[in-house]
C-alpha cells in the first residue's frame, strides 16, 4: 500500500471523494442562495427545507407513482420550484420594502413549518431510496474503488453549476438578471417585467436546491433533517465565498468540501469545525468574502 504524507492512499482518496460529494451539495445549495440573495436581497433560510423537499418529492414519486430516479431528477425540481414560485408570490414578495431581517425571519419560519410537517408525517428516522440500476456498483480506479453513484453526483453537480454560471454570465437573460441585481428600477424602465423576473429567480434557486435533494436521496436516507444538516455549513460557505457571488459560491462549495474531507484524514477531531474556522479567518481578513466585492 503506498502512502501520501504518511497516510494510506486509499484513506486519503476516500476522504477526498467524500469531501467532493459534500462539496457538490454545498456548491448546489450555496449557488441557489447566491442567486436568490443577488436578486431578492433575501437570505433564504428555507433553502435546506426545500432541498429536503426535493428528496421527499422524488421519494414520493417512486413510492406512490412508481416514477423512478431519472424522471424525478427533472420533475422534482420543477415541482419544488413551482412551490417556490408560490411562496414568493404569496408571501416573500410583501417583504421587499422592509428590512432584510424580515425575509430571513419569514423563510426561517417557512423552513420550520416544512420540516415540522415532514417530521410529523414521516418521522425522523428516514426512508431509503435505492440507487438507480444504471449507477450501482463501483469501478476500480487502480488507487481506489469509486462507487459509480458518488462519481455521478460530483459530475452532475459540476455540470449543473457550470450551466447555471454560463446562463448567468453569457446569455442575454443572464445579463438582464445581473443588471436587475444592480439597479432593478432602471431595468424595469427599460421594459423588463422585473417582478416576474424576481419570481422566476426565486423559483430557479429553489429548483437548484431540490435538484441537490434528489441527488442526495440515494446517499443519505430521505429524512426531514437532511436539509438542516447541510444548511448551517452552506451559510458558512456563502459567507466565505462572498454574498451573492455566483462563481464564488461554486468554487468555495467544492473547495470547502475538500478541505473538510482532508481534515478528516489529518485531524478528524476538527473536521466538523474546520469550515467555521475558515469562515472566521476569512471574515477577519476579507469581510466581503473571497469572491465578494466590498460595498
Amino acid at each position: 500500500m503506498f502512502m501520501i504524507l504518511g497516510y494510506p492512499a486509499p484513506l486519503m482518496f476516500g476522504q477526498l471523494l467524500l469531501g467532493l460529494i459534500n462539496g457538490a451539495f454545498y456548491a448546489l445549495l450555496s449557488l441557489g442562495l447566491a442567486i436568490i440573495f443577488g436578486m431578492l436581497r433575501i437570505i433564504n433560510f428555507a433553502h435546506g427545507a426545500l432541498f429536503m423537499l426535493g428528496a421527499f418529492v422524488a421519494w414520493g414519486m417512486l413510492q406512490y407513482g412508481g416514477i423512478g430516479y431519472w424522471p424525478a431528477l427533472i420533475v422534482a425540481p420543477i415541482i419544488v420550484g413551482a412551490f417556490g414560485v408560490f411562496l414568493e408570490r404569496t408571501m416573500i414578495r410583501h417583504l421587499y420594502k422592509l428590512d432584510h431581517l424580515y425575509g430571513l425571519l419569514l423563510t426561517f419560519g417557512l423552513a420550520e413549518i416544512i420540516e415540522g410537517l415532514a417530521r410529523n408525517q414521516f418521522g425522523s428516522s428516514g426512508m431509503p431510496y435505492a440507487i438507480p440500476a444504471a449507477l450501482q456498483g463501483a469501478v476500480n480506479l487502480g488507487f481506489m474503488f469509486l462507487p459509480i453513484y458518488r462519481g455521478w453526483v460530483v459530475i452532475a453537480a459540476v455540470v449543473v453549476c457550470l450551466v447555471t454560471w454560463i446562463a448567468i454570465e453569457r446569455t442575454s437573460l443572464g445579463a438582464t438578471l445581473r443588471a436587475a441585481t444592480e439597479n432593478a428600477p432602471l431595468v424595469q424602465a427599460f421594459g423588463v417585467n422585473v417582478p416576474r423576473l424576481i419570481t422566476l429567480t426565486y423559483g430557479a434557486g429553489v429548483a437548484l436546491a431540490a435538484f441537490g435533494g434528489v441527488l442526495a436521496a440515494p446517499i443519505y436516507s430521505v429524512n426531514p433533517n437532511m436539509g438542516s444538516n447541510f444548511i448551517i455549513v452552506v451559510f458558512a460557505v456563502v459567507v466565505i465565498g462572498g454574498m451573492g457571488s455566483i462563481l464564488g459560491s461554486i468554487v468555495t462549495g467544492f473547495g470547502l468540501g475538500v478541505v473538510e474531507g482532508l481534515t478528516k484524514v489529518f485531524y478528524p477531531q476538527a473536521s466538523a469545525t474546520v469550515i467555521f474556522v475558515v469562515m472566521v479567518i476569512v471574515l477577519l481578513a476579507r469581510p466581503a468574502g473571497l469572491f465578494g466585492k466590498a460595498t
Binding site: 428600477p185 424595469q188 424602465a189 427599460f190 421594459g191 423588463v192 417585467n193 422585473v194
Partner: peptide
C-alpha cells in the same frame, strides 16, 4: 402605469 408598461 408601471414603468415597464410605460416603456412598452
Amino acid at each position: 402605469l408601471r414603468s415597464d408598461n410605460i416603456a412598452k
